[in-house]
Simulated scan of single mutants.
Amino acid sequence: MRILIPFLCAVAIALPTKARELDVVVGWNKPPYVISQEHSGFEIELVRAILAEMGHTLSPIYVPFGRTARLLKDSTVDIGLTQSAAHNVDDSVLSDPYIIYQNVVVTKTQNNFVISEVSNLKGKRVIGFQTAQSVLGEEFKQALALEPMYMEMARQDRQVDMLMLDHVDAIVLDRNIFNYFKSQNSAYDKEETEFHELFPISIYRAAIPNPKLRAEFNATLHRFVADGRYQLLLDEYQLDNLLHKLPKAPAKL
């Protein structure tokens, strides 16, 4: 079991709402964000710590990704993680952004590949994550549809192995999923890799129908970012902090 750093040892503040156990819907296993076997992972531990500072405890409910919106609509849960307006969830119940994903093309630096657009992947041995052609846009789908050396793989740890062992030229996956699995094998420590940022970031929020709970969550989240506890947890999982990629808020007049 993971021994957490002082990140989780925050002193509870005065509680504006009655302390209770909250049902939190979480997607199925997706290291390093969700490690369901251990009830851990960056997202779970971040939200657990935020709720603890608010005086609540987290009770995770693991479901297939698409079922979260239904459970929220039926008012059977308190919070749904990894949500956006694209997930058939009312934008008004979404918290401020708490995590950002970004799919990238990863290559080994020693190969000196120039990949500035999707078409540069043609003729290369490429492995994408499962459903990549469905979710990365029409340009990606068309560019690789007829490529005999393109395939998709459900196990993303195997994607990383295939790249590091030179069985493929490039892999397509979330940058922090890559960082996590690369860090799990010390044999890969000295291998330098390059991220080719061909795809936009994906901004995720927590769906919290209760407006008071949502406001408290937002305030506590911002406090975690400001005082460094957010970064400490990222560092524990060896993840990149992508909050700086959020669109800038318009200046107030």
Rank of each mutant, 00 (worst) to 15 (best):
I5P: 08
E38I: 01
L58K: 02
I100F: 04
H56Y: 13
E197D: 13
K108S: 03
V135E: 12
G27K: 14
D96V: 00
A14G: 08
L94H: 10
G66A: 12
Y188A: 08
S95K: 09
Q238D: 10
T57I: 03
E147N: 06
A143T: 15
K190V: 06
N185Y: 10
S134A: 13
V77I: 13
K18L: 11
A12Y: 05
P200N: 13
E43Q: 09
N111H: 14
G27R: 14
L136G: 02
H39T: 07
S40M: 03
Y237P: 06
P31T: 02
Q110H: 02
Q110L: 05
F195D: 11
R48T: 13
S92V: 13
D157H: 05
H39Q: 14
Q231K: 12
R214C: 11
V104L: 09
V77P: 02
L232Q: 15
P6Q: 12
G137Y: 07
V106M: 12
V26P: 01
E138V: 13
H167K: 15
N210K: 13
I127Y: 08
D174R: 08
A69Y: 08
R214E: 11
Y98L: 01
S59H: 15
F217M: 01
L253E: 07
P31I: 07
Q37F: 01
A12D: 09
C9I: 05
I3A: 12
D161A: 14
V26T: 12
G128V: 06
R20S: 15
P211G: 03
P64K: 06
L165K: 15
S119F: 03
E38F: 02
D96C: 00
N241L: 05
D96R: 02
D23S: 14
R205G: 01
R229L: 02
D74L: 15
L163F: 10
M153A: 13
M164F: 14
V63K: 12
F65H: 14
I127H: 06
L15V: 10
L94W: 11
A52I: 00
C9P: 00
N241G: 02
T193M: 00
D96A: 09
I3Q: 15
N210C: 09
E139N: 14
Y230N: 06
P200M: 07
